[in-house]
Amino acid sequence: MTNKRNIWLTGPYLVWIAGFIILPLLVILFYAFTNPAGNFTFSNITAAVTDITNIKAFGLTMLLGFLATAICLLLAYPLALCLTKLKIKQKSSVIFLFILPMWMNFMLQMVAINVILEDNGIINMLLSSLGLPNMHIANTFGAILIGMVYDYFPFMLLPIYNTVSRIDKDLINASKDLGASSFMTFLKVTLPLSMPGVISGITMVFVPAISDFAIAEMLGGGKIMLIGNVVEMSFTKGQYFQGSGLALILMLFVVASSLIPGDDEAEASVEGGVVLP
């Protein structure tokens, strides 16, 4: 009964969804299957997946998405484990430090990264003062990767940290009591129980990473086109039909990557405090 009544509370948000999520999606769907003359066509979709430039952009985007996600995971997981061992007070200040960059405007973050990476930038100034050869990172694939890892890192750290910190200490103690080494305990207890956090972290980094265009535009010097840049270019040049076709394909990738299985099951096992066999 109460559930039914509370449904009213979702009213404003339903209006929001309808106007700003469902409607634009329908518009994109419409454009994706329409030609400029207004007739039904598959050509936008076929062009999106057969054009060599688009395929190249898709490839680069996926590669970048995988690398950014993998690096974020490798950096965030050990950090999350260490964080749980800290005292409450230290914990909150360390987490605060990781969220701090998000207080700053995204554009400023990217401009700052560019200044750090430039040929005459801070990294190269340090290298020169040590007598080491300069690195050329600005406006390359590497620069975009650094920007993505920097920008999306908190989205990997926080979910992992949340699940790891909720793992019952008794389970770990029990595992040790039963003779498991620290490594085995990690492998058999901590790792499986932290999977829900890892999976949501991966989704929260990979999905925005593959649909991003701003980081590539700002750190790539306009020399590297990700699929997001191709979509953006199509729309700013008024080619809504091709752009929508591409956007639809990109959406398929996004949907596919957020359907990584095991999420619910793992979540349930944490809440129930039961270790999976």
Binding site: D119, A138, N139, G221, G222, K223
Partner: peptide, 9 residues
């Protein structure tokens, strides 16, 4: 030429 270009700005 793109290989020689630092950035398009």
């Amino acid at each position: 030429q793109k290989g020689d270009v630092q950035a398009y700005l």
